[in-house]
Design a protein around this nucleic acid. Sequence first.
DNA 1: GTCTATATGCTGATAGAC
DNA 2: GTCTATCAGCATATAGAC
Lengths: 193, 193
Amino acid sequence: MASMTVGTVAEDTKSRLLATAVRLFSEHGVGGTSLQMIADELGVTKAAVYYHFKTKDEITEAVAAPALRELEQVLDEAAAQRSRGAQIDHALAGFVDLIVRHRTLVALFNTDPGVARAIDRSLRGEENFKTRMVTLLAGPEPGLAGVITVHVILAGLALTGGAPDHEDLDDDTLRSHLFEVGRRMLGRPKRRA
Amino acid sequence: MASMTVGTVAEDTKSRLLATAVRLFSEHGVGGTSLQMIADELGVTKAAVYYHFKTKDEITEAVAAPALRELEQVLDEAAAQRSRGAQIDHALAGFVDLIVRHRTLVALFNTDPGVARAIDRSLRGEENFKTRMVTLLAGPEPGLAGVITVHVILAGLALTGGAPDHEDLDDDTLRSHLFEVGRRMLGRPKRRA
DNA sequence: GTCTATATGCTGATAGAC
DNA sequence: GTCTATCAGCATATAGAC
């Protein structure tokens, strides 16, 4: 089993590749980053990149994957809360926190169609993300108005959090503002200071 | 002045080209539509397309332009309203109406980075769209919370209106739901039936 | 002023040698 | 696991016909 040891050379190259991809994607966008650029930065050829990932889309998916897994975890935690109010607050706070912490990534998601498709594919499995989020935020039988409201909130928060307009804001400020906007939109009562 | 008559051959080709581009963009997305496809559909060569528009970006800008001009008009009308309440309702209703009527286009805007850039360029002129919208919806001195709230609303409405999830909804249903969500988020009082 | 023919240097992707 | 070689298709560009 020596060849299955954690730190094989291939694993290392693969993670180096991913790290390089994230950096270049953030700097030039996904569309503005070619496999050639990634390969050059790594000191290998394009074909070597293709050994680790069959397509460019697969790279963007791999970049997005960790954040999506975090999101699933937030949903699990939120669903485990006892009261409806706690479920809503936990889901909203977790979602906002993810957006703020992964701002750069979110900005990428918002502007690149390939990443959006990758997310869609990941989210439309049996563990449908959007359905779960709607259930958490608008209850088990939300109706059309509820579904649309949740859609507007989630899309709005994600786009706003990733927008370059607010990239100078520190995490805490952005997080608390987005959270309060979300709460207000969901009709949650005001909290004490 | 005969050569400046309205219906020159070039003008006709140019508008046919634009109509074809809109259709193909809607079917295959901007990235999925090549200049070759547009040229073939028109029965001309790629170079002919290139004669009318210097770049592909210029085509996407031209596709988005009419809707953006409509938006400017909505802002002008809203600003001309007497009461703050009427300004807010007019701006919101106009924005939502635009999104719903141009749903296909909005969906394109939301998924294509090139179109997004084109819009940005158009909107960040002296007549800054976002600043005007914030002033209309959150008042002349909105503060950070106000700016963020408006951003979340506008982004959320646009993304939701263009989303494939709701493409089966008829215009009136979608419009009224989006409008109500927006009003609620802006703290506007309930209307009578 | 409007278009065709042709070419350049990219891109993502594949096949096969080492 | 990484290489070289090669592919078709892309946006873009220019020269020149009419």
